[in-house]
Amino acid sequence: MALEIIESCVNCYACEPLCPNEAIYQAAPHFLIDPVKCTECIGDFEVAQCASICPIEGAILDELGAELNPPGSLTGISLEMLAKYQAAVEATYQAALEAKSA
């Protein structure tokens, strides 16, 4: 029974000091949870602390691999809007490439 931090983590440190079991540690390329130490905060807090402060949707999974903060739950940004974001980033990137080669 343990939570997991995955690659979308942006290394903001917010979760690390909150863990009652000191199960979270800095690693490359992102923070990790020691599954042996993690108790999902049961007995300490009503809700898992790391998942309660994490600003990145989908970055923390429960023991079944489900996202504790699914898309849209924190930012209000829907999947549809997210697709728009990815298109905008791609467009900016392509434009920068073109400007460089011009």
């Binding site: 942006v10 290394n11 903001c12 440190y13 917010a14 402060i53 600003p55 990145i56 924190l74 930012t75 209000g76």
Partner: peptide
């Protein structure tokens, strides 16, 4: 100071 305790709609630290 990378950690934050709130989310603002104009911010995205990614």
């Amino acid at each position: 100071a990378p950690a934050c305790n709130i989310q603002c709609h104009y911010c995205n630290r990614k």
